[in-house]
Each structure stands twice: as structure tokens, then as C-alpha cells.
Simulated assay, not measured.
Amino acid sequence: MYQEKTKGFIAEFKQFIARGNVMDMAVGVIVGGAFKAIADSLTADIIMPVIGIFVSENSFADLSLTVGTAVITYGNFIQAVLNFLIMALVVFCLVKGINRFHRKKEEAPAAPPAPAEPSEEEKLLMEIRDLLKERK
């Protein structure tokens, strides 16, 4: 009984893994993780130094508030929000581009309809025409 449940579970898991969507999702997660590093670098190495000119800090991560013995590093939160906004903008642009591509694909002109089946009268006339051509 236990072995049958295990085989069923393993078979179901194999079927789940073999689906194309799971593989696409795995690739998306890996690429998304790599892109997160790019977004973090963009925020920390390019955007934050420029903003730091106006806030007189190197990065938002240096911004903190001490309350008693607790140190509240609200700058880290601001930097995380900027990273999120960058990622959200990129995802929005990707989805918008994909939607535009699908719309153009849907708007593409349909193939011309197949010629209608000739009626019995038209078939008879074509036979007569062909016979007349043979006589000449």
C-alpha cells in the first residue's frame, strides 16, 4: 500500500516537472535572480551616489535613526523600495512589449478564404468547356 502511494506520488511529480510551464518558470526565476543583481548595482552604484549629492550621504543605507539603543536603518528600506520600483518598471516594460507583439499578431490579416466549392451547375459547365476544348 505504501509503495503504491510512493509510486503514484513520484509519477505525479515527474509529470509535474515535465510540463513546459514549470521549466519556463524555473528559467524565469534564474534570470530574475540575475537581473536583481543588476538592479541592485544600478541602485547602489549609480542612482544612490547621484542622490547622495543632495542628501549628503553616500547611500540611503547610511541613513539611520537611533532611538534609545535601537538603530532604525530606514535608508535600507528606501533603497529596497527603489530596487523594487526598478524591477517593477522593467517587468512592466516586458509585459507591455509582449502584449503589443500579441496584439500585432492578432491583428495580422487572416488568410484569404478558400474558394467556395463549385455548384453542380458550375461543375457541368466546366465539363462542357473542357469537352469543347478537346474537340478543337
Results as ranks from 00 to 15, higher is better:
1 M>C: 15
2 Y>K: 09
3 Q>Y: 06
4 E>C: 06
4 E>D: 00
5 K>M: 14
6 T>G: 03
10 I>W: 05
11 A>L: 13
12 E>K: 14
12 E>T: 10
12 E>Y: 10
12 E>F: 08
14 K>H: 00
17 I>K: 09
17 I>L: 10
18 A>M: 09
18 A>C: 01
19 R>W: 02
21 N>R: 07
21 N>S: 02
23 M>Y: 15
24 D>N: 12
25 M>G: 08
29 V>F: 06
30 I>A: 13
32 G>M: 08
32 G>C: 01
32 G>Y: 10
33 G>Q: 04
33 G>S: 02
34 A>S: 14
34 A>D: 08
35 F>M: 05
36 K>M: 15
36 K>V: 12
36 K>T: 05
38 I>W: 00
38 I>K: 01
38 I>R: 02
38 I>G: 05
39 A>T: 05
42 L>T: 11
43 T>F: 01
45 D>S: 15
46 I>A: 11
48 M>V: 09
50 V>P: 06
52 G>N: 03
53 I>K: 04
55 V>F: 00
55 V>L: 10
58 N>R: 10
58 N>W: 02
60 F>L: 13
60 F>C: 00
61 A>R: 06
62 D>T: 09
63 L>S: 11
64 S>N: 13
66 T>H: 13
67 V>C: 02
69 T>C: 01
70 A>W: 12
72 I>N: 03
72 I>Q: 02
72 I>S: 00
72 I>E: 01
73 T>S: 06
75 G>S: 08
76 N>G: 12
76 N>Q: 09
77 F>H: 04
78 I>Y: 00
79 Q>K: 05
81 V>L: 02
82 L>Y: 00
83 N>W: 03
83 N>C: 09
83 N>E: 01
89 L>W: 02
90 V>C: 13
91 V>L: 03
92 F>W: 14
94 L>R: 05
98 I>D: 09
99 N>F: 01
99 N>D: 09
100 R>G: 04
100 R>F: 01
101 F>Q: 10
102 H>K: 14
102 H>G: 00
102 H>C: 10
102 H>R: 10
104 K>G: 09
105 K>H: 02
107 E>R: 03
107 E>W: 00
108 A>L: 05
110 A>S: 05
114 A>G: 00
116 A>P: 02
116 A>E: 12
118 P>W: 03
119 S>W: 13
121 E>A: 14
122 E>T: 13
122 E>N: 14
124 L>G: 08
124 L>K: 15
125 L>D: 12
126 M>E: 15
126 M>K: 15
128 I>L: 14
130 D>I: 11
131 L>Y: 08
132 L>S: 10
132 L>Q: 05
133 K>S: 11
135 R>A: 11
